[in-house]
Design a protein around this nucleic acid. Structure first.
Lengths: 171, 171
DNA sequence: TTGGATAGTCAACAAGACTGACTTAAAAAG
DNA sequence: CTTTTTAAGTCAGTCTTGTTGACTATCCAA
């Protein structure tokens, strides 16, 4: 009974009773939510013969235009060889523009072309729609909590690389 | 200025101004959080020569003892053949016990052995620790919001299969 | 008891990640 | 001006995990 109450945890302070079961619920929730979250773009990507890796590359190049390959590598946390395959395709297909660096000519600065932007938009559109709906349903307070917990979940030394975090603290 | 205010959305009602950029922030957040969330168990799994698929199987068999292969298939959303390889390994290695169904002898009911339970525990321990920390840092209200938004993100026809949702609505 | 549907298994193959060794070009250090 | 380091890209091989197709065993209904 008191277990059930703690498991529900509507917004009281009994959250300090964090049973392993409650935490496992959270784990499961993450799994299913992430799946729902990637389901729509995955379908679209198939039509293009692309995978999730392509989506990630498009996303981050869109958000950080002029990004170098190394920086992207660092963000994605994959190997150079793995990213390169994906990047080469995207450049060949005219979705990404790879320009020789101005100050350091060894570097390549990455930009989305117009068609790259178009694909990124249509890929993220389904995700944005889903997220907008979730945000609307859940309400502003829930969204704030959602963001707060998720930020805490990010690897600490990864946090500086997350754009959305800047100026989002509420302290 | 008003844009920046909306982007912060401390807990007011201006959440209706959901810019694409805010939503993309959420998308990015999901990406990084999920990565942080799986990082620890991934390391452990390597030592055993297992992958994430093994972890998922162990997790769900632990939470729903006696689960049939078909039911697990349905939860994981992969093909029977893909799951089977993983399952076979786990059975061979003595982590999962596969018992012929009592009413329907075609079915196999899955259970964790003692060593299966031990591995599941140590795998989820790192995740639970991370999640516990995130929950503590964020506070009870944030956790509630976190859960609410994540639930909304799950594919609607998947929701009945998520254990943690039962009796967790606050309506 | 025959035939179809369902539960699970086996085999071969493909995508996408990884490691390791290497090349090329440019920058930085000596 | 050489040498070393760094950024990027490539080739080859492996591993995990997904796929499709063909198969066995069991149940159930005609």
């Amino acid at each position: 009974m008191s277990r059930r109450f703690a498991a529900t945890a509507p917004r009281g302070e009994q959250l300090l009773f964090l049973t392993d079961d409650q935490l496992r619920n959270g784990i499961e929730l993450m799994f299913f939510a992430y799946r729902g979250f990637t389901a729509d773009p995955d379908l679209l990507l198939e039509d293009y013969g692309y995978g999730r890796a392509h989506h990630r590359a498009l996303h981050f190049v869109n958000r950080r235009p002029g990004l170098t390959v190394n920086a992207l590598l660092d963000i994605l946390g994959v190997t150079k060889q793995s990213l390169n395959r994906v990047l080469r395709q995207l450049v060949e297909d005219g979705l990404i523009d790879s320009r020789v660096g101005e100050t350091d000519r060894r570097q390549r600065n990455l930009f989305l072309t117009e068609s790259g932007k178009a694909l990124e938009r249509s890929l993220s559109e389904s995700q944005r729609t889903r997220m907008r709906k979730a945000y609307m349903e859940a309400g502003p307070e829930a969204v704030h909590g959602f963001r707060t917990v998720l930020e805490q979940m990010i690897d600490p030394d990864m946090r500086p690389r997350v754009l959305g975090l800047v100026g989002d603290g509420d302290d």
